[in-house]
Design a protein around this nucleic acid. Structure first.
Length: 288
DNA sequence: TTAGCACCCAAAATTGCATC
DNA sequence: GATGCAATTTTGGGTGCTAA
């Protein structure tokens, strides 16, 4: 477990995504900051000092500052990794071994009229995410925000807020089992990911999950801040963005692939969400 | 290929309330 | 806190057209 005294709150630095090709090995290096690695697909074989970790889909590892890390084995398949760098201003984190988790350890001091409360975040250094889809959603939003927005003070604050939310979720992962609301949200997200190519119908989702449509909407709003339809659009456009960059398919073909048959409507939606037309986006990302 | 506009209507979202 | 119902409001998504 990594114990982080709060305040000050950990600060997000930057983040991104990379695809480790089959046969490649993670870099050998030492960072002065925390490095969170999350594997979406494939398997990453990492060694931090003398400890080895096999990080599979849905698992993450937090590399501690100033410790040497390297890949200890080649990737056996293409591996999709999201990484985040963050720091703790006072550098006073601790590694706690075999610590029984309970809130009394976390909560240190009540707030007074003039002094903030003191507590400690306890996060497993390596773990499997219980709310995989929800956490992926947070991670995706964070790296997307970091990549696409300008660097105004507003955006900086937005990123910090998104990162804080992610951190709180990680803490919750360590202490609790998913609530009924989160389970419903997870199921709905899974359904959407499985059937995004077909026209989306709330009724079908409702029948599949055996819950009232209103209830499903409420659960998703509460958990990820999106309604089912918003999530379908978000998921489709994310996929389309990847296809625009990684392939030379026509916009109409990509629109169809992601479940939107009408290319006019697809372009309209894309521009509304991204502020660019699909072709402009392709050219911008490829620097053409 | 994309934008812009107008129109339509079914479906989804919101809200307040009730029940367990 | 979880879940459903009903009424109301809002939105999504499609279509058709023109123009660049």
């Amino acid at each position: 477990m990594i114990a982080l005294p709060i305040p000050p709150f950990p600060t997000f630095i930057t983040g991104g995504q990379y695809f480790a090709q089959k046969g490649t090995r993670h870099f050998h290096r030492t960072f002065p900051v925390f490095d969170l690695l999350y594997v979406r697909k494939g398997m990453l074989f990492l060694q931090e000092e003398n400890r080895q970790y096999d990080i599979g889909p849905g698992q993450y590892l937090i590399l501690v500052p100033d410790t040497e890390h390297k890949g200890y084995r080649d990737c056996e398949e293409e591996t999709d990794v999201i990484w985040l760098h963050f720091t703790v201003p006072l550098h006073n984190h601790l590694i706690v071994k075999d610590q029984a988790i309970d809130w009394s350890y976390v909560y240190k001091k009540e707030a007074t009229f003039t002094e903030p409360a003191e507590y400690s975040f306890l996060i497993p250094q390596f773990g499997q995410l219980k709310r995989k889809d929800i956490m992926e959603q947070h991670l995706q939003q964070l790296i997307q925000t970091d990549k696409e927005q300008d660097h105004s003070p507003d955006d900086y604050l937005q990123k910090q807020l998104a990162f804080s939310e992610l951190f709180i979720q990680l803490q919750r992962e360590a202490f609790s089992i998913p609530t009924a609301t989160e389970k419903v949200c997870e199921k709905a997200m899974k359904y959407i990911q499985d059937y995004f190519q077909s026209p989306f119908k709330m009724k079908k989702l409702s029948e599949e999950l055996m819950f009232h449509p209103d209830y499903i909407t409420r659960c998703m709003q509460k958990t990820i801040g999106m309604t089912p339809v918003q999530y379908v659009t978000y998921y489709r456009l994310n996929l389309a963005k990847r296809m625009l960059v990684q392939s030379d398919e026509k916009v109409a073909t990509i629109a169809k692939e992601v479940g939107i048959d009408d290319v006019t409507y697809f372009s309209k939606l894309f521009k509304k969400e991204e502020g660019l037309t699909p072709l402009e986006y392709r050219r911008l990302v490829r620097r053409e």
